[in-house]
């Protein structure tokens, strides 16, 4: 059974295996296919049109399914690997062990934001950025640039307290838990973390940075925590909503999975601590 752990608690061997599995997917082309999929959805999901992966109620079940697929790809390389989660309310500076050279490497240098250490630095030769929005082929980061701050636990708790899953118009203007977690309204959780990391994480091709998966694994865990706090609050909308994935509508690109299928994470993985 897959157990997703806090990245800060991983052993040296677990870190090494996770990194090696990422590098293997990069080498065989599977990794870049995931980047392409994400960018295609982020460019096509619109507030007044069809929207599946982002700015819509299915943001959470879509990314849950996307991470499960990615985790299965990692496990095809090394069955012992699971996607760790990054609790950015605790590990909230560039000095965190997350950004050490034995794991993801650190922030980029000032001249061109290029990451210069760790297994994903361009200088390692193992991490060419091929699915990209501009000409740069090296991994970039600007951790906490311009004094930006990651969300605090109190800000997370204020969003977890919202009892309604989502609300009309079911997009970036919505009230409710989903849009506040996604960050288009309010204290801004998920979006702000992308911006804090910077580099490719701030673009539509954000999965180019391996921290993408750990960020979304924590967002996914927060969804589970919200469900525990609000056991009587259902996924919304239930049915008949134009341009939006209702509870029992199938989601692209898989077309065989619905939000209803994704509400319970436990058939797919558990957590190292109570979710």
């Amino acid at each position: 059974m897959t157990v997703r752990k806090n990245q800060a608690e991983l052993t040296a061997d677990e870190k090494r295996r996770f990194v090696n599995a990422l590098l293997a997917l990069k080498r065989n082309g599977q990794y870049d296919a995931f980047v392409t999929t994400h960018n295609a959805f982020i460019m096509s999901d619109t507030d007044d049109g069809d929207r599946v992966g982002h700015r819509s109620p299915s943001f959470l079940p879509w990314h849950r399914r996307y991470l499960i697929q990615f985790e299965q790809a990692l496990q095809s390389v090394d069955p012992s690997v699971a996607v760790p989660y990054w609790d950015w309310t605790v590990d909230r500076t560039a000095a965190s062990s997350l950004w050490a050279a034995d794991f993801l490497g650190g922030t980029g240098r000032s001249r061109d934001s290029q990451v210069m250490d760790g297994p994903f630095a361009a200088t390692s030769g193992a991490w060419p950025v091929t699915v990209r929005v501009d000409g740069r082929t090296f991994l970039r980061r600007t951790l906490g640039a311009n004094g930006r701050q990651l969300p605090t636990r109190a800000e997370v708790d204020s969003v977890l307290a919202m009892s309604t899953y989502d609300a009309a118009p079911w997009n970036s203007a919505s009230d409710g838990f989903r849009n506040h977690l996604e960050g288009w309204r309010g204290v801004n959780l998920h979006n702000r973390v992308h911006v804090w990391v910077g580099g490719q994480m701030g673009t539509g091709a954000s999965p180019n940075d391996p921290v993408f998966w750990m960020h979304h694994a924590f967002i996914d865990k927060l969804w589970s925590q919200w469900q525990q706090r609000h056991p009587n609050s259902p996924y919304l909308p239930a049915a008949g909503t134009p341009n939006v994935v209702d509870l029992r509508d199938t989601m692209r690109p898989w077309n065989d999975v619905t939000p209803a299928d994704m509400l319970d994470h436990r058939p797919h993985y558990t957590y190292d601590t109570a979710a």
Partner: peptide, 16 residues
């Protein structure tokens, strides 16, 4: 891309 509230994002700055 234009957001519902009239603000804008681009593929380079997609979350801000």
């Amino acid at each position: 891309m234009r957001n519902a509230d009239g603000t804008w994002i681009s593929v380079v700055n997609h979350y801000e």
